[in-house]
């Protein structure tokens, strides 16, 4: 594996907090992987995102131990604004994620490139491309303040993608969106994965994780409890004890297992359920 993000024995405590939010976290994230972080409230998911993007320690102070390396570089030594080119960051609240000074979606998406000093002609071309890619070209002349939550979240994603970072850190992008908005956001995430971006995603909609993610990191009380390929983590017996949801398919299958049915494998996507049941029947010797 070619780790693009590496955490080594990282512990962190916020300035006004009494307890460590992350405790001795070590993990590697491979290039081009879509890695999802799950965990209950205050498990440390957002803190982990802030750490990877460098907002800890550059923006949030507090006590930080251990090291965070991105592309082999110590994040604490990087410049916060410059990191935008390397690591994109999108979070849950679609209403605050606008510059607050631009009057059209086009200008809004261009804001990051202006800050990076990209020549104007390049900016126009890149913004055009991204508006097409993210399918928000129809919004180009709208005022960002007048958009719906789902539209704003897509504009926020576009505003980050336009800077073409290799890594995307996306913290619960759909938690304030309706199903249509969620789907549109995940379309964009899938597209970014196809383009080879490394994606770190916090999400609690397990069906979406089962469908899109390569790896799953389970956090609890600031510690990494499980980390591995999605299918393996869901199938791990210790996952159940952590009190986190399963995908629908897996939950259903586990119920059946509890009722005495032997499962040939744990289905995690809806379309795997039929296959699983068919194989289970064959095993039991029925037609």
């Amino acid at each position: 594996m070619d780790p693009v993000i590496q955490l080594k024995n990282v512990s962190y405590r916020y300035p006004v907090g009494d307890e460590q939010v992350l405790k001795n976290v070590s993990l590697d994230i491979g290039r081009g992987k879509l890695v999802t972080i799950v965990g209950n409230n205050s498990a440390g998911k957002t803190t982990l995102c802030n750490l990877i993007r460098g907002f800890i320690p550059h923006f949030y102070k507090g006590d930080l131990e251990g090291s965070v390396l991105v592309d082999g570089e110590e994040i604490a030594d990087a410049q916060l604004g410059q990191l935008a080119e390397k690591i994109g960051y999108v979070f849950q609240n679609p209403f605050i994620q606008i510059s607050g000074v631009k009057e059209t979606v086009f200008d809004e998406v261009a804001f990051g490139l202006e800050n990076l000093g990209v020549p104007v002609d390049d900016i126009r071309r890149r913004v055009e491309d991204v508006l097409q890619l993210v399918k928000i070209d129809n919004l180009r002349n709208k005022n960002p303040f007048e958009l719906s939550g789902g539209q704003r979240q897509r504009v926020a994603l576009a505003s980050i993608i336009v800077m073409d970072p290799d890594i995307l850190v996306i913290d619960e992008p759909s938690s304030q969106l309706d199903p249509v908005g969620t789907e549109q956001v995940f379309d964009i995430i899938r597209l970014m994965k196809e383009r080879g971006k490394t994606i770190v995603l916090v999400e609690h909609k397990m069906d979406l994780i089962a469908e899109y993610a390569d790896e799953l990191i389970v956090l609890a009380d600031g510690e990494v409890k499980l980390h591995g390929p999605v299918r393996e983590v869901f199938a791990d017996p210790s996952y159940m004890a952590l009190g986190i949801q399963y995908p629908h398919a897996a939950a259903l299958a586990l119920d059946l297992q509890e009722k005495g049915m032997e499962l040939p494998f744990l289905p995690i996507r809806d379309e795997e359920v039929a296959e699983c049941l068919a194989r289970a029947r064959r095993k039991e010797g029925r037609p």
């Binding site: 405590r13 006004v16 923006f59 102070k61 507090g62």
Partner: peptide, 15 residues
């Protein structure tokens, strides 16, 4: 304890 931690990682520009 808290104060020293805050100062230790104090970056003027972010303030």
């Amino acid at each position: 304890m808290n104060k020293t931690a805050t100062r230790k990682r104090s970056f003027q520009q972010d303030f």
